[in-house]
Amino acid sequence: MSIYDKLKELGITLPAVATPAAAYVPFVQTGNLVFLSGHIAKKNGTPWVGQFGKDITTEEGKTAARAVAIDLMGTLHAAVGDLGKVKRIVKLMSLVNSTGSFTEQHLVTNGASELIGQVFGDKGAHARSAFGVAQIPMGACVEIELIAEIA
């Protein structure tokens, strides 16, 4: 089954690349690596605002991180033209807007990691970091960046 067949089976339509909100580009390719800039969680087209440990739950966060993964795949598709060219998802880095006492950043980030694994199979097994941070641009609850290797 192709990656696009898997996306269709999951009911996922890849979005167009979002216009950067500041002085950066959505992706950069160097050699066989593609680096995607951080994508923030959105809900109904606007930043998904919240802070874990205060007004958003871990389960809501997994849903937010999954939504970010969909946006990242849309940008990756735009960067390489065909997700079938992806040799490996190398790494995800997740920033989770958290209070000082919240310690489930890794569980929030699972929302993205699990979807990447579903879509890419063995090629989706990746290294990962999940950090708790005091704030993310526009008050978003999660921001994730991705590195992929292209065949």
Rank of each mutant, 00 (worst) to 15 (best):
L95F: 09
P20Y: 10
H106P: 00
K8E: 10
L33N: 14
F102E: 09
D71K: 01
G117N: 13
F27N: 08
S94L: 01
A69D: 04
I40N: 11
T46A: 14
D82H: 12
K42A: 05
L92T: 12
A21D: 14
Y4A: 11
T63H: 06
L7C: 05
G74K: 03
V108Q: 05
A64I: 01
D5L: 13
A69W: 00
G81Q: 00
N32K: 15
G74C: 03
A21I: 13
L72S: 08
V34E: 09
S94E: 06
T13M: 04
S101R: 12
A64D: 02
L115Q: 01
T58P: 05
A18W: 07
T30Y: 11
M93G: 15
K6A: 10
V96N: 01
L107Y: 11
K42D: 04
Q29C: 10
N32P: 12
G45Q: 10
D5T: 15
V96F: 01
E59K: 13
P47Q: 10
V119H: 02
G74W: 02
K85E: 08
I3W: 00
Q29A: 13
K43Y: 14
L33T: 15
L95R: 08
K6P: 06
I70C: 03
V34S: 08
I12P: 02
K91I: 06
A18I: 10
L107D: 15
P47R: 12
F52W: 07
L14V: 06
A79M: 02
I12W: 04
F120R: 03
G38M: 02
I116R: 06
G74E: 03
V80H: 06
F102G: 12
A78V: 07
A23L: 12
E59M: 07
T58G: 06
F35A: 11
A16K: 14
R66L: 00
V96G: 00
L7E: 02
K54T: 09
L36W: 00
K42P: 02
R128I: 11
N44I: 00
V25S: 13
S98F: 03
F120Q: 01
E59F: 08
V108N: 04
A65D: 02
I89T: 07
V68Y: 06
V49G: 05
L76W: 01
L83M: 06
I12M: 05
L36T: 01
G11I: 00
V34C: 08
M93Q: 15
I40C: 11
D55P: 08
S37D: 13
G11P: 04
Q118R: 11
G81I: 00
D71A: 09
